[in-house]
């Protein structure tokens, strides 16, 4: 079954066409990278997929179900996770509290009003496991605003992972990370691709070639090329508009 199917998707802001007639599909377990120069519409595409923005035209199917008009939280319930380009954490909460909020979401104790939060032992155990797997356990009691940017970035991704999504959207996951941190992130995401489909947009071509099974190149809101990482790197049109060509 197709994990994601995008049909003729377009988005305009006033008179500005940001995306136009996008069509692509992705299978379960696939990892698709969206690349393109700044302003190509990468983040807008992810926002349309997550439901943050409503498309002007076209349809989106998630796990075989049309979700074009579906709200964000309903899409998450279907198995969609989203990690943002700019960290969107809960300042004022500790690392552990941030993860607990994410882990709690798919649980059945949705509107539990009388049972104290501290009594959910299973939830705390899961949080510990997740934080340990991301080497964040030592910072469990640290307020997120006091974390280094790299750690905040890891936590941002941890929130997406905590939902155990079937499809994870990652917006510039390695943005602002050092080369070591970026390599660690790539390892972590690589392991993840065994069970989860991933759509990510990035400028980091090392990350793209390491993770992506397929690359979609956006340019002024249109798909100009699609294929494997190596194929894309050798595509003359892509080279010209995105990767750059050597001038004689």
């Amino acid at each position: 079954m197709e994990t994601l199917k995008v049909e003729n998707l377009s988005k305009t802001f006033g008179g500005l066409k940001v995306l136009e007639g996008l069509c692509f599909t992705m299978e379960a377990g696939e990892c698709v990278a969206i690349i393109g120069p700044n302003g190509a519409g990468k983040t807008t595409l992810l926002n349309l997929l997550s439901g943050e923005l409503q498309a002007t035209g076209g349809r989106i199917y998630l796990f075989g179900q049309e979700v074009s008009r579906m709200s964000v939280h309903h899409r998450v319930r279907l198995g969609l996770g989203h990690s943002f380009q700019l960290n969107s954490l809960f300042s004022g909460f500790t690392v552990l509290e941030n993860v607990l909020l994410a882990l709690k979401s798919p649980q059945s104790h949705y509107f539990q009003m009388l049972r104290p939060m501290t009594t959910y032992d299973l939830l705390f155990a899961k949080a510990e496991e997740l934080l340990k797997s991301l080497s964040l356990w030592e910072e469990e009691k640290v307020l997120v605003e006091n974390l280094s940017y790299g750690k905040q970035r890891q936590l941002e991704i941890a929130l997406g992972l905590a939902l155990e999504p079937r499809l994870l959207l990652l917006d510039e996951p390695s943005a602002g990370l050092s080369s070591v941190e970026s390599a660690e992130l790539a390892n972590m995401l690589y392991k993840l691709t065994e069970n989860t489909s991933i759509v990510f947009c990035a400028h980091d071509m090392e990350l793209v070639s390491r993770l992506a099974h397929r690359v979609i190149v956006l340019y002024y809101g249109r798909i100009i090329a699609e294929g494997g990482p190596r194929e894309i790197q050798n595509n003359p049109k892509v080279k010209e508009i995105y990767l750059g060509v050597e001038k004689m």
């Binding site: 943050e52 964000v72 939280h73 909020l101 994410a102 979401s105 929130l159 939902l163």
Partner: peptide
């Protein structure tokens, strides 16, 4: 907004 993206 993040809460929405966590499925709440």
């Amino acid at each position: 907004n993040r809460m929405r993206h966590l499925g709440y």
